[in-house]
Structure formats: C-alpha cells, structure tokens
Amino acid sequence: MRSILIRSFGGPGVVELAEVMPVPQPGPGQVLVRVAAAGVNPADWRIRAGEVRRLGEPPLGLGLDVAGTIVAETAEGGRFRAGDRVFGVVVPPQGSFAEYVAVPETALALTPDCLEDAEAAALPVAGLTAWQALVGAARVLTGERVLVHAAAGGIGHLAVQIAKAHGAHVVGTAGAANQAFLRALGVDEAVDYRTPDVFARSERFDVALDPLSGANALRSLDLLRPGGRLVDVRGTGVDRTGLRERAEAGGVELTELYFRPDAADLGALADLAARGALRPHLGRVLPLERAAEALAEVERGHARGKVVLSVAAG
C-alpha cells in the first residue's frame, strides 16, 4: 500500500511517499479501515518538524484524521461491521496518510450519511477539540456570550457551529477576507481581528476559545467576566505560570486543553452533522502524493476550514 512517512524530522522535503508498505494487521480491539480521506492538522506539520516528540522518533507515519470503510472487524466482534463508513483518529507512528490503517474501535464513530468522506475526514481532531473545549471544559450554556478566536480556521469554524447549536451568542474573529464566511457560519457578530481591535471591546464574555495561544491567551483574560472560562487549546507562547496566575487573580477558569480520541464525542459530532447543525468546510482537497504541499499550506496558517487529502486504496 501507499503511505506518507518521514525518516527524519525537518521541513517539507522530509515527507516521503512510500509505495510498497505492508497493510497493517489489526490488534485486539482494532478494525482495519480502507482510507478514503485524511484531514490535515497543524499537529501534523509540528510532528514532521520535530516540535512534537512524544509520539516517538522517525520513521513515523503522518496524519491523525481518518475517514473510510471498515474492511476487517475486530476478532472479538465489536461495534462495527465490514462495510461500515467510519471517521475518527489515528495516532502515529502509524498515521492516517495511508491507504489502510488499523484503528481502535474506541477512536471511531459511524459517518453520518449527510457527510462525504472528505468532509468526515475534516471533522475528528478539530471537531473533538472544539467539542471538548466548549461542551466539556467550558460547559457552554444557552444565552452565554462566546468569543471564538480564529473563527474561520479548522477548529474555529466548527466551534462557531457547536456554540450556536448550544444556543450561545457567538462573536468570531478573523481577517477581512473571511468576514462573509463567518456570517455564513452563523456568528452573531464577525470581527476583523485587525480593525477594530477585539481586545479593546468593553463588553465581557462568558467563554473564550483560543486556538492561537501565545500573547493572545493572556489578552483574552481581560475580555472575560469574573467566573468566565478561557479554553486555550495550544498551551504555548507566554509564560504559562504567569497566565495561570493572571487567570486565578481575575476569577477566570483556565483550561489548557489537548483533545482526546473519544467515541462518544465523535458520535455527538456525527449527531450534530446529521441534524444539519454542523458542516465541516473544505478549504482544499489534494491527492495523497501532494501531502508535503498540504502540510506546508496548513503550516503557513490562515487557511479557511480544513485541508484534506484524498486517498484511493489500491
């Protein structure tokens, strides 16, 4: 089978298309999935660059998001059957940028009929991050004011829809070129993060979701009411001790979140999609052999929605 891997950490040049890789053999609790599409996330280029080392040393497969079809069920007889369309999360050293992957059933959910495979592949990591931030950590409630930074991005555009589905009043930030896109997503107010300065606003929010981190997280504290909740899904940049101390002093609940694969949460995302309340936006769909280009595009930032790789198993 074909698979994307790296044999050393580095720039786009280390990304390799391996043509004759063995089809993985599922272990206990795993199913074999024929991959139809794989989403591209910022974590993928950070793994390529060596910024994320906890997944091991090269050689490593790349890719976390997967959507495809079950071709081999678990030996124990689990939740899925051959022929089921599924989406979920694959963790390196295997990686989802491949024609076949072995995936734990606990990291998968059934793909709703309303989503094409490429759309389903755009949903797992960004969708889980947005869901676990807003519903799990922030416990967003009907009528609350929610600020979503980078609202046109992979996490942000899904977070807007999730917050709206929970009855929140949503303000989203993005560049000038993405203002109409934010309004189409359903934000109550679209704000150009350059002008006017969102951090100069006088009103206060109940919840802020920050996928940017750095100084952005620190400045977001001043936009929250006492008792408000800031969810930082990057956890990098400014001194983290200082950020935590500022949050505590201001009476703000700070959560530094890294998503976790969870079948129930994936199922909740599928339910929202089936209800018409959640739709991933595909910024670009590229073939598997252009994985290096896809990673570089995500690394440059400012992409609208998600970049996805189309995979055709041989």
Rank of each mutant, 00 (worst) to 15 (best):
residue 252 V to Q: 09
residue 111 T to C: 12
residue 24 P to M: 02
residue 263 A to C: 08
residue 277 A to Q: 11
residue 284 R to H: 14
residue 96 S to A: 15
residue 22 P to K: 06
residue 15 V to A: 11
residue 52 V to R: 05
residue 312 A to N: 12
residue 5 L to S: 14
residue 306 K to D: 06
residue 254 L to I: 10
residue 298 V to D: 08
residue 121 A to D: 13
residue 267 G to Q: 03
residue 240 R to M: 13
residue 268 A to P: 02
residue 267 G to N: 04
residue 179 Q to C: 06
residue 200 A to R: 15
residue 251 G to P: 10
residue 281 H to L: 03
residue 180 A to L: 10
residue 259 F to Q: 13
residue 48 R to Q: 12
residue 294 A to N: 06
residue 39 G to I: 02
residue 195 T to D: 09
residue 117 D to C: 03
residue 90 V to E: 02
residue 159 A to S: 02
residue 44 D to Y: 09
residue 45 W to A: 05
residue 25 Q to A: 14
residue 1 M to A: 14
residue 161 Q to I: 07
residue 40 V to N: 12
residue 311 V to D: 10
residue 209 L to K: 01
residue 58 P to F: 11
residue 116 E to W: 09
residue 284 R to G: 04
residue 120 A to M: 13
residue 43 A to I: 15
residue 132 Q to T: 02
residue 297 E to D: 11
residue 314 G to D: 14
residue 42 P to Y: 09
residue 284 R to I: 04
residue 123 L to P: 06
residue 65 D to Q: 00
residue 208 A to D: 03
residue 272 L to N: 03
residue 201 R to Q: 13
residue 153 G to K: 06
residue 16 E to G: 03
residue 178 N to A: 15
residue 208 A to C: 13
residue 251 G to D: 11
residue 106 T to P: 00
residue 148 V to I: 15
residue 14 V to I: 05
residue 58 P to V: 07
residue 222 D to G: 14
residue 263 A to F: 02
residue 88 G to L: 06
residue 178 N to H: 13
residue 28 P to L: 08
residue 257 L to A: 06
residue 252 V to K: 05
residue 208 A to G: 02
residue 301 G to D: 01
residue 80 F to E: 01
residue 87 F to L: 13
residue 53 R to N: 12
residue 112 P to K: 08
residue 301 G to C: 04
residue 159 A to T: 05
residue 36 A to T: 08
residue 114 C to N: 15
residue 274 A to I: 00
residue 108 L to D: 06
residue 127 G to K: 02
residue 37 A to E: 11
residue 104 P to A: 08
residue 296 A to S: 15
residue 239 D to C: 01
residue 31 V to P: 08
residue 293 E to I: 06
residue 203 E to S: 11
residue 83 G to T: 11
residue 160 V to C: 04
residue 55 L to H: 08
residue 28 P to Q: 12
residue 151 A to M: 07
residue 300 R to N: 07
residue 50 G to D: 08
residue 193 Y to W: 03
residue 173 T to P: 04
residue 282 L to R: 09
residue 57 E to R: 11
residue 262 D to N: 15
residue 125 V to K: 01
residue 79 R to T: 14
residue 107 A to I: 02
residue 243 L to K: 10
residue 94 Q to S: 10
residue 298 V to T: 15
residue 52 V to K: 10
residue 91 V to H: 07
residue 191 V to H: 05
residue 17 L to P: 03
residue 79 R to W: 13
residue 220 S to I: 06
residue 255 T to F: 13
residue 82 A to F: 00
residue 101 V to M: 11
residue 216 N to S: 14
residue 219 R to S: 08
residue 295 L to N: 13
residue 48 R to V: 09
residue 172 G to V: 01
residue 313 A to P: 15
residue 288 L to Q: 13
residue 184 A to F: 00
residue 253 E to A: 12
residue 215 A to C: 00
residue 148 V to F: 11
residue 139 R to L: 07
residue 173 T to R: 04
residue 201 R to I: 07
residue 163 A to H: 09
residue 234 R to K: 14
residue 141 L to I: 00
residue 10 G to H: 11
residue 188 D to P: 04
residue 149 H to N: 10
residue 264 A to D: 10
residue 144 E to M: 05
residue 271 D to I: 03
